[in-house]
Nucleic acid binder design. Sequence first.
DNA 1: TAACATTGCGTTCACGTGAACGCAATGTTA
DNA 2: TAACATTGCGTTCACGTGAACGCAATGTTA
Lengths: 342, 342
Amino acid sequence: MAVTLQQIAEVAGVSRGTVDRALNNRGRINPEVADNIRKLANKMGYQPNRAGRALAMSKMPVTIGVLIQAAKTPFMEGVLNGVIEAKAEVESLGARVLIKTINDMDATKAIEEMQNLKEEGCNGLAIVPVDDEYMKNMIDKFAEEDIPVVTFNSDIEESKRLCFVGQDTFRSGKVAAGLMAEILPESGKVLVISGYPTIYGHRNRTKGFTRELKNLRNDIKILDIQYAFDDDQMAEKITKGMISEYNDLAGIYITASGVHGVCNALEEQGMLNKIKVISNDLTEQNIRYLEEGKINFLIGQDSYEQGYQPVMLLFDKLFDSKEPEKEFIYTEIVIKTKYNLV
Amino acid sequence: MAVTLQQIAEVAGVSRGTVDRALNNRGRINPEVADNIRKLANKMGYQPNRAGRALAMSKMPVTIGVLIQAAKTPFMEGVLNGVIEAKAEVESLGARVLIKTINDMDATKAIEEMQNLKEEGCNGLAIVPVDDEYMKNMIDKFAEEDIPVVTFNSDIEESKRLCFVGQDTFRSGKVAAGLMAEILPESGKVLVISGYPTIYGHRNRTKGFTRELKNLRNDIKILDIQYAFDDDQMAEKITKGMISEYNDLAGIYITASGVHGVCNALEEQGMLNKIKVISNDLTEQNIRYLEEGKINFLIGQDSYEQGYQPVMLLFDKLFDSKEPEKEFIYTEIVIKTKYNLV
DNA sequence: TAACATTGCGTTCACGTGAACGCAATGTTA
DNA sequence: TAACATTGCGTTCACGTGAACGCAATGTTA
């Protein structure tokens, strides 16, 4: 049977209140007495009973805010599912979770909503940040006021956020390279199409991909990285250009949006299935192309965990004073073919 | 703020006890009154507070038994981690989890341990069953005594178990076929090595694999299925035989143990990297071969979920009277290369 | 030295629930 | 009709915890 505060109090010969003060560092206690009690609690294997704590804290419930884009992509739906599941779980323990969706993650709007959430009583915040100086300052301000902020999906490393939950994008690029190396024929050229080079994740993916592919296949030449800025028409134009320039083009890796344009180009030039295509993100369109066999692999993120974890990390911190184990909590890198979707 | 029994009682103009009787179907209540209260509770969005329930039930705690092999494979460690995590979670709500490991899942021994667990007060059981008539009867007996049994990893479909948590093995075979189709060269032969044909999972994997590969690649000939009975030497002998018989052998799919034998054969005959190898299960040895590039893909199971889910399903059933959503709860089919291990 | 603050403890209240008990009104049996 | 059972409710207790309060002993300030 589990050890309770009362049992510790009896063994220590003090009252329950004193044990409480000792274990929760509330002060107003003789340091020696506190130390003894802590040692005793440790020896007896005391673990606070969550149910008791939850009831006692229901007067001042832990309140977690979640600020998230409203975008209706399968990825975002997965994230939202994770958030909702976590919400149900912590709410059954008396906590509150306020979910705010905004249409586009514009920094000014987001900062405004952060302020609103604070005024609604949030003592912890999970947010998909944008790379913006004011947003960083806002996160730091929250942290200084002892309102921990967890970033997820994207990150501002220099900020005082508690931790980050998301993908290791460099490694994601390496996974793509490993797959490409498996399916490429003997010799040939590979095209890398990146999104905005200013976006950290895109830069990292291309870096991981090119480095590892060079390692694995010295019979393959990687063409200069092309930037399509998440634009399908641009991606299509680039692809067409490369196909006509290099008749031994064997593979294309796209770090971001633009798959539609690439597939259009391949189809028009009759190169579908001849040129291997690997991309990231389980968007609806990407999934359709995967099912149709127009692209070979998708590298996905565990969207559910990216929603679930931030809420839970904040709850553990605010409810149990439990710090996250790591600063970077990387979600699994998922390889998807048409056979293991869902 | 969350709705409580007390609030419902006030609105309904009855006492809290009456609401409790209505919502938990305890009888001793006017059916009309009960019906009204249930409707009201629904309308008010009542969700029982887990913390309150947990405290109230701490006199007769929910007790969950887990019966599991002691094998020290990475897979089993993952399962055990999942069980341990779930244990911590439900114990913090006052429940108890008794974990029993046995060295080999011998039916007689397992049945004995099931009996022991029942005598120790288990009111729910998670078990990796073996295909055995007596075991099936024991599971049925438990079910009849209102002790729900969840099977995981393997299953006895005909039994009265609550549900099964594990892999869809047929689909797992199809995933392997999809990968094989991607990496095989133009034309050639593929060898399928199965474990014991009597084991449901092995049969299903070969079936899924052969059917789908035939679909995808009519330039590829699939050789007659060979049985290595999870034996490395047998697998090695088969592989050597096939290599010398067919000089266009291009791929090998192994449903079970025997990868070591296959790799030995390939190495001796200088065919490493020339013949593609795909197998199942993230054993230590398999992972090493994957890292060394001797095998191309591993199809893995989500071991953690296979330990975590059964305990949670039983807890939800026993604590919240919540039935599992499905009879078959399939864990994700994971594609592993050396780049997305862990 | 009087007035007040701090230290170091014990005690009480409240949180929401399930189980057990109480008890009047009504039904059933011999 | 007396003795007992059942129905239909209300009431109380207990679970473990955090916060607030109480209060004597000791320290600090003017």
